[in-house]
Write a protein that binds this DNA or RNA. Structure first.
Lengths: 331, 331
DNA sequence: TTGTAAGCGTTATCAA
DNA sequence: TTGATAACGCTTACAA
């Protein structure tokens, strides 16, 4: 196993100082074209790679970005998380950063704290937002640069999100356009900001169509299959003509409940989801849903963080390029 | 923002040398009880945390473990990956290590190489194994400590896996016990070792029951829904009485295909999966499957790697504590 | 344009 | 039992 080359090796081989080599590599400071060329030639030939840890120590940086992964994520949250992760990875890799995952249980900041205390990351990306996120509070209180994926009610938080309100509004409006008049909205309120956005979008969709929703058809208690069953039971006596689910998990539960009760989709009720998933595509019937580009979200968050490191002042962003995928459930 | 305490601060505050403080913290070297007590009291009170990066530089370690995450993972691989990740996290956190995720595309070692070149990790965990894994080859060639989750054909590779052969054999045998005689096995051969294990287990199950399988009922070409449809069509003329799917994805496809063709489960055919998932529990009918403890797998891999760092000689392990969850599909 | 030398915050070696 | 002092590999004033 060849011992790794250090900057001192390169310097002495080339008969120059470490400083010169460092400068040739970083491009900082005045240095002759010729020297730069020689250094690059040598390091290319001998495959020298600067030790990022040593550089980090000297610069007080780690070139790591912490990404929080909640242990409460379930099978339905994974696709979102991985899409974000890929976007983050695109940007970090391109900028010489790496991703350090911190598993967090129950939003407790203990493990995040460890990583921060140990100086393992330069900044952090939160992959979901809640109303009074203890993690965000902790990061703020300790002046750790961070960005949140998802909308935070705290305007100080650097954040990036899809335009859920507009997208949900649009989907709602398009069901109304197709003739639906009594749409039910089914979700689960766990304190996540997105639940609120989806409600707002639903109401906005009605408003855009010039219609008035029956707010008693909004149910935010879809805790599990059993609850969903009861919700469907209740809705059967309310002359509903369509159901919108806040996410793909609830959509699945609704489909199961409808099948059990002999409710046919889309003939009896139309059905749509405010969040798409591959399952909604392969289910029968396939379900109309909003598709967002979550990878882009991750990339934007990572870019914002790196901009922050570099002294720029990135702004929170909202992406408007969602697509509504129409499928059998609203045919 | 309080400037972080350094070991020098602690030393001068206590009127001792940095060496002494370092020794009191690490527990290495002779040092008086009294001094240790004083140092610990002080650092507890003032919340001093050693800088892991600096320590790493001095010791030529990073206290990071690289975990490879394939970008080809799909919705069906996520639960497995996250279970492993949690297990890894349990062990790394307990040992002062962190997890550095490397996203790898198409098994190309480029991004892994970056991480290794940059000295960002002390070792690597591979979360899946293939026949001639370029990543494993790379790590081996460069003397990077690593462990694989999943069975590798290369006996040099430190590995940890569930006893898939025994589990698959057991499930197969139990279907035979229930009266099945002509079981079909449906899988997809992508060169993963596990496919082979599952075949072996299937055959072993027949052997254990003292029966002989019809090997022409083994189909390893379940590439997508369409292929699966054709497989089911073919099996309908072969007087099959049960189907075993290699994983939960294929199980879902088989269920869809059966529904389309009016094949009733479990009345017409019994159905079981060699890998469990929450979907098999909530589907209708729910599907009998083997449940493994993948978190334990991750924990074991991480522990092996850390043992390796500490000069011990960990052995590859196979876990035998699977459970077969019997559900409606084999009632 | 280049070099010297002092950090960065630890640990390790060798004396005392 | 403790303490100087030199690493670790790099960056960065400050000099030349």
């Amino acid at each position: 196993m060849a011992p790794k080359l250090t900057i001192a090796d390169v310097a002495s081989a080339l008969g120059v100082s470490k400083t010169t080599v460092s400068r040739a590599i970083s491009g900082k400071g005045r240095i002759s074209e010729e020297t730069v060329r020689r250094v690059h030639e040598y390091i290319g030939l001998h495959n020298y790679k600067p030790n990022v840890v040593a550089r980090g120590l000297a610069q007080q940086k780690t070139y790591n970005i912490g990404v929080i992964c909640s242990t409460e994520y379930d099978i339905f949250a994974y696709p979102f998380f991985h899409a974000c992760l890929r976007g983050i990875g695109d940007v970090t890799a391109a900028n010489g950063y790496d991703i350090l995952i911190t598993l967090v249980e129950n939003s407790k900041s203990r493990d995040l704290q460890r990583v921060v205390d140990n100086c393992k990351v330069d900044g952090v990306i939160l992959t979901r937002t809640t109303a009074n996120d203890p993690l965000a509070e902790y990061l703020k209180a300790n002046d750790i640069p961070f960005a949140a994926i998802g909308t935070s009610p705290d305007p100080d938080v650097l954040q990036v999100d899809n335009d859920h309100v507009a997208a949900c509004s649009k989907l709602t409006a398009s069901l109304l356009e197709q003739g639906c008049r009594r749409l039910a909205l089914i979700g689960l309120d766990e304190g996540h900001v997105i639940t609120r956005c989806r409600c707002d979008g639903f109401l906005a969709g009605y408003a855009a169509a010039g219609l008035t929703p029956d707010r008693t058809l909004i149910r935010l208690d879809a805790a599990d299959q059993q609850h969903v069953g009861r919700i469907i039971d209740a809705l059967q006596t309310r002359s509903v003509d369509g159901i919108i689910c806040m996410d793909e998990k609830i959509t699945g539960q609704v489909m199961t409940a409808c099948k059990q009760r002999g409710i046919h989709i889309p003939d009896d009720w139309k059905l749509a989801s405010f969040y798409d998933s591959s399952m909604l595509d392969s289910s029968s019937p396939s379900v109309t849903a909003i598709r967002f580009d979550d990878r882009q979200l991750g990339a934007a968050a990572a870019q914002m963080l790196i901009d922050l490191f570099n002294g720029r002042q990135p702004q929170s962003r909202v992406f408007r390029d969602y697509r509504i995928i129409f499928r059998e459930s609203t045919a």
